[in-house]
């Protein structure tokens, strides 16, 4: 799995952190997404796909 983030699209909703808190975080000042792990293990894959699907700004891309 390879995760890429489009920071310019990110709207700081934090839905990704709710779905996959081990993979995503938010910056303190503006809430923009921080990618903690661009290639997480299989135990995270379902959560990451949920995060990408739930992102209201379509800012998370997942390649497998």
């Amino acid at each position: 799995m390879r995760i890429t983030i489009d920071e310019d699209r990110c709207c700081a909703a934090g839905q990704c952190v709710l779905a996959a808190p081990d993979v995503f975080d938010q910056r303190d000042d503006d809430g923009i997404v921080i990618l903690l792990d661009a290639d997480p293990g299989p135990d995270q894959h379902a959560a990451v796909r949920d995060a990408a699907a739930a992102c209201p700004a379509a800012a998370i891309m997942v390649e497998e």
Binding site: A12, A13, G14, V17, L18, Q26, R27, D28, D30, G31
Partner: peptide, 10 residues
């Protein structure tokens, strides 16, 4: 203008 803290309040 406090996204991270707002999410905590969720």
């Amino acid at each position: 203008n406090r996204p991270r803290q707002t999410r905590a309040a969720r």
